[in-house]
Write a protein that binds this DNA or RNA. Structure first.
Length: 318
DNA sequence: AAAGGGAACAACCGCGGTTCT
DNA sequence: CAGAACCGCGGTTGTTCCCTT
């Protein structure tokens, strides 16, 4: 079955030959591709326009970076995926020279398995139940070489309800697990938290206490970092964007924050009327369009205080 | 050396959104 | 304004390569 756009034509399918590649390259570099549907005819190819477009975008474009993904690229994919989900084209925009198809294939063939091996749900980036993890691990024949899951965050609590809500207040850490002493353990979603031990300095007694949580980074890095409410990276003392030692360029930070605004999974319910002026304005500006402008300044303070809202009820996540 | 299986990668398919007529 | 054509995206399938037995 051919593409609907060119079902009348006799088209070739399957892998591209070097001769076909040459024809396409010559045509596109000479005449451009203002209309893909006319490219096959003009270039002398027995392919449909859609196939030509795909071949050019995913393989022949001169600005493509070939070769395996670097660790930094892998971390970027994981971090942006946690925020945006399977928006491969959006994710690929943060990786110069990489295509959405390439990112998608890399995710499905490599990263997904690594996350599962670490006990993380590749869709939600939350912890999998041990049962589900084993099922998934068995399914993919997880390699022993995958890194072991390392708890990145521990906290004592007497309130399981409040602690459960913590994972929604702080999307960057996963669904907590409880032991028999009511101690919860969080594991970070991303590799770059794996070596950090983050300890809550305040015992959670009720939901309202969550708002005043302070976190101290006790990692070997030595800096005092704050968990990012965006679920992406951390802020250091000078409020610089930090993703586990990788400083994202300012433009990239802005671009990602822009996407956070658009990310449907970060929609919020409208806060109460007595919120701070800033939050109130944000809500008024954004609630009608059902998306919340996630403002880092209002949620993260340089002093290390996580959030300035006074009640969980006022900050109900969707 | 050959067969089998898995991983990685390339390409296709269908759908939704946008633009054109 | 409606339908057709086109484009872009995400999911899925097919192909090739490489490692193990």
């Amino acid at each position: 079955m051919g593409h609907h756009c060119c079902s009348k034509q006799k088209i070739k399918r399957g892998l591209w030959s070097p001769e076909e590649d040459d024809k396409l390259i010559k045509h596109v570099t000479t005449y451009g591709h203002s209309c893909w549907s006319s490219v096959p005819k003009l270039a002398g190819l027995q392919r449909c326009g859609k196939s030509c477009r795909l071949r050019w975008i995913n393989y022949l474009r001169p600005d493509l970076k070939r070769g395996s993904f670097t660790e930094q690229e892998e971390r970027t994919i994981i971090d942006v995926h946690r925020i945006l989900g399977n928006k491969w084209a959006q994710i690929a925009k943060h990786l110069p020279g990489r295509t959405d198809n390439e990112v998608k294939n890399f995710w499905n063939s490599c990263i997904k398995k690594k996350l599962i091996a670490q006990g993380l749900d590749p869709n939600t980036h939350n912890l999998l139940s041990s049962n589900k993890t084993n099922i998934l691990k068995n399914n993919i024949n997880a390699s022993n070489s995958f890194r072991q899951e390392t708890p990145a965050f521990t906290m004592d609590t007497s309130s399981k309800t409040a602690a459960s809500d913590l994972s929604t207040l702080l999307p960057c850490i996963n669904t907590p697990r409880f032991d028999h002493k009511n101690t919860i353990q969080y594991t970070s979603c991303s590799d770059h938290y794996q070596n950090s031990m983050l300890v809550g300095t305040q015992q959670i007694i009720s939901q309202s206490d969550l708002s005043a949580l302070e976190f101290t980074n006790c990692s070997s890095m030595g800096s005092s970092n704050v968990m990012s409410s965006s679920g992406f990276g951390t802020l250091n003392e000078s409020c610089m964007w930090d993703a586990g030692g990788i400083e994202f360029p300012i433009e990239q930070q802005k671009a990602i924050q822009q996407e956070i605004v658009m990310a449907p999974q970060l929609q919020l319910q409208k806060p109460n009327i007595n919120e701070s002026d800033h939050l109130q304005n944000l809500a008024e500006d954004t609630f009608d369009s059902a998306s919340f402008d996630f403002d880092f300044d209002s949620a993260l303070l340089p002093s290390g205080v996580y959030c300035n809202v006074s009640s969980m009820d006022q900050l109900a996540w969707d």
